[in-house]
Amino acid sequence: MDRILVGLKRVIDYNVRVQVKSDGTGVETDGVKMSINPFDEIALEEALRIKERGEANEVIAVSIGTSEAQQQLRTGLAMGADRAILVTADGYLDPLSVSRIFLSLAEKENAGLVMLGKQAIDGDNSQIAQMLAALWGRPQATFASGVTLDGDTARVVREIDAGLETVEVDLPAVISVDLRLNEPRYVKLPDIMKAKKKPLDEVALADLGIEAGPEVKELSYAPPEARQRGVMVEDVAGLVAALKDKGLA
């Protein structure tokens, strides 16, 4: 296989406690730490391992958003991606449009695999891989916890509710990855320096000729209903009594 395309989304860092803005228009992002969506990092790690095994020639990191996403792409390049593409777009983009962007790049780059996180931890949608596969007419293997390539096919172990499912797909294909696929490598300082010299191309969304939407409009954000702190008991007897009180034991 020649090329693997990997999507890296810039999201609020995993460890940040997200706060809804008081006017309900979204969540606070001012001064908040941003990172690569953790699932996307796992997708990139897997792509790099495939390349290191000699099963792919080039790994291309792709992000969509404002120029701030260059930061995440540079991290991806430091991890080992060969080059990066930033599709510049302002504001919110719906998942179908994002999938159309990936389709356009997958075709242009003649990708053998497109690897994505199984969901982004901001919108928690879990849609892009599935939509891209539909638009591309190629296989999808979502929630992957194991990927083995064999010539023109891939065997993917999927984490599903019923257990671990194995599917075989013909390449090119779309794979979305789950948490336990691998542990992404740490970036070392010399790699960060090297990454500065790697190509990072910017393409304007308008130049890809992507038709947007139809959009699912976000009307308002609200904090979730909070659960109240309950009672503390001293021992097992107290716990059993409290459960009996609620008719649960």
């Binding site: 997200v18 809804v20 998942p95 179908l96 928690d124 939509m131 699912v216 409009k217 009307l219 308002s220």
Partner: peptide, 29 residues
């Protein structure tokens, strides 16, 4: 597009769903 994880129906075309690991609830249309 698709609406993920409907947690309540507000009208035939409007729904509430959780985002950011449930730290925010968004109403979509």
């Amino acid at each position: 597009n698709q609406v993920s994880d409907i947690m309540s129906v507000e009208s035939s075309h409007s729904f509430k769903r959780p985002v950011y690991a449930g730290n925010a609830i968004v109403t979509v249309e």
